[in-house]
Design a binder for these strands. Structure first.
Lengths: 340, 340
DNA sequence: ATATTTTGTGAGAGCGCTCTCATTATAGCA
DNA sequence: TGCTATAATGAGAGCGCTCTCACAAAATAT
């Protein structure tokens, strides 16, 4: 039986409820012997504070929400999200917060989820994975409700909201520049969806690299993917007639699909065609030909998002803050350098 | 401002707090015009009930916890868990529960997590992903605390606890029998860790298939993996000297690693060596040679776990129930049938 | 020695809701 | 018309905690 209350422990130890509360919450001004006596009683009888009562009285739930909107639900085949979640969960553990996961598989899910996250007294703040136009409304409503929010990935309207991101344009530019430097002439890209910030930004970086190095952009070499392996595979098949000799894919998983298509078409990697992906998730080195990729620190990304959010919760919201994390080009076999 | 209370809405509409509560919770015996008036006021002023207050008063949080113990943390590279989580999240959405995720990356995490999940008034029930000896204590303590629990995967001590599982022994037996039927003579297995229920059971199924078909078990063909791609790769390398002509891996991701090792060793798949995995996650068909595998319905597995748990929460705990879900052998290229 | 601060403890007022019980308005039936 | 069922509402007692305030005891300053 563990439905003891503070009152019970107080009675058991002959002190008042207030004193027990002080002990439980580590407040000062408690005599050592009293503290010990109370702690013992708690230990012996297996007392655990009632979360809801505590939340109601203190107006703090010590719980944060992770919202993965509908637009992200599709991407759940991408290991990016589990890794991000892992980073978030770890930071929550470290900072003594609990994590509520709101995963919208469908648009209707989103409608069901919103009233729940909007409830007062459930969450102290939320992390929203974004990037899609359609996610703006959730972000907006959360901000309007004066709920501390950190967005993962640049939101489309980024005023009044704190977010954490990498410099996608710059990172993509670097990746493509590397391919140019290797002497590749017909560099294609498999971009992310045009409705997503990463899709837009990484494509912009691709174009920028070409323009700055005075390479003409051939639109036949630009194709949109959907962040799935199958999408990468299909995109590559559509790209083949344009005879690319290199591909920059906006995610590792798409790069893997593209490499599979290239191999099926009889192309040798990296001799006939080079590949650079984006993310550097463990699966990048899973393939037979290890994938060169633009590493982003996904797990730390999640952790930093939590740290930022907790800071907002505990020290106030404005002005909105933004954190840009570093990326790093990881050169492996798929672009023709560093052969074993 | 959305810190309105029931009382505020009551005042605004000229009724009592009780009446507003009834409207919010869809209780009967409310005059239509009153209901409408209240609903309008709620809509207009953006009222959302206070979750903690509601929980405190009703002793129901409508939140369930998913606990992924330390032993599972290692496996987070396996897409199995994201898929399971997806199934769980979907069912939560459908049944109007929120989901709290407790992901223990380390043993210390587990110690930090336990007091949180043990708090009264936070969770109505928990789903524990298990399979490892070390997870017993969490399960035991939850059950002792009379918290509704559903375990994913047969726990080591399964009395007094409801769980959901597949028949791992039978499934493994089927997979191996298939390889025997195809005429493979030296069938190896890359098992899961010996401390895990699936590791034990799938290995038992492997042995059973051989014994029942009067094939001698060569211990050189039995090796333990760790449910990672790299582990599968290493296991295969250690297996090669024993010259297997088929491998049954206890997970798809290990099978993929094993196939990579086989290919690197110059073996042709499936001509020289056949592979059967376990899970049938999307990545099974990601490889160049599509993987034959024992399909388990991972997403539904998660959903059923939630349904079972919610049933326990709402209709009582005992007797413990168990649900065994079906598996199905999916034959693809890697074991030499159904070539394109 | 008295005044003042610090330390240790208790009393009690909420936090915002649910739910039982009491009460009144309305309908159904003899 | 009165008498009982039912519908519709309000009053109010908690749920288990936190936190402010009051106050006594001990430590320090004057």
């Amino acid at each position: 039986m563990s439905s003891l209350t503070l009152e019970d422990i107080a009675r058991l130890t002959g002190v008042s409820r207030s004193t027990v509360s002080r002990v439980v919450n580590n407040h000062p001004h408690i005599r050592e012997d009293v503290r010990k006596r109370v702690l013992d009683a708690i230990q012996q009888n297996g007392y655990h504070p009632h979360a809801a009562a505590r939340t109601l009285a203190s107006q703090r739930s010590s719980m944060i929400g992770l919202i993965l909107p509908h637009s992200v639900g599709f991407f759940f085949t991408d290991p990016y999200y589990p890794h991000l979640t892992k980073g978030i969960a770890q930071a929550c553990n470290a900072l003594d917060y609990s994590l509520a996961l709101f995963l919208a598989g469908t648009a209707e899910d989103e409608d069901k989820i919103f009233p729940r996250v909007a409830r007062k007294g459930l969450l102290d703040g939320v992390i929203i994975q974004s990037g899609h136009h359609g996610d703006q409304w959730i972000i907006g409503r959360m901000v309007d409700a004066r709920m501390p929010v950190v967005v993962c990935g640049r939101p489309f309207r980024s005023d009044n909201v704190s977010y954490i991101d990498i410099d996608n344009i710059h990172a993509a530019e670097q990746a493509v520049s590397h391919l140019i430097r290797l002497g590749r002439k017909r560099i294609a890209t498999i971009a992310g969806p045009a409705e997503s910030a990463v899709g837009i930004d990484r494509l912009a970086g691709y174009r920028k690299a070409l323009v700055e190095r005075a390479v003409a952009v051939d639109e036949a070499l630009v194709i949109e993917g959907d962040f799935t392996e199958a999408g990468g595979f299909l995109a590559m098949q559509r790209l083949l007639p344009a005879k690319p000799d290199a591909v920059f894919a906006a995610s590792d998983i798409m790069a893997l699909g593209a490499m599979r298509a290239a191999r099926e078409a009889g192309l040798r990697i990296p001799d006939d065609i080079a590949f650079v992906g984006f993310d550097d998730l463990p699966l990048a080195s899973l393939a037979d030909i290890q994938l060169s990729t633009m590493r982003q620190p996904v797990v730390q990304f999640g952790s930093r998002a939590v740290e930022l959010l907790v800071d907002l919760i505990e020290n106030g919201i404005d002005p909105p803050r933004r954190v840009i994390m570093d990326t790093e080009l990881v050169v492996r076999d798929s672009c023709g350098l560093s052969r074993r």
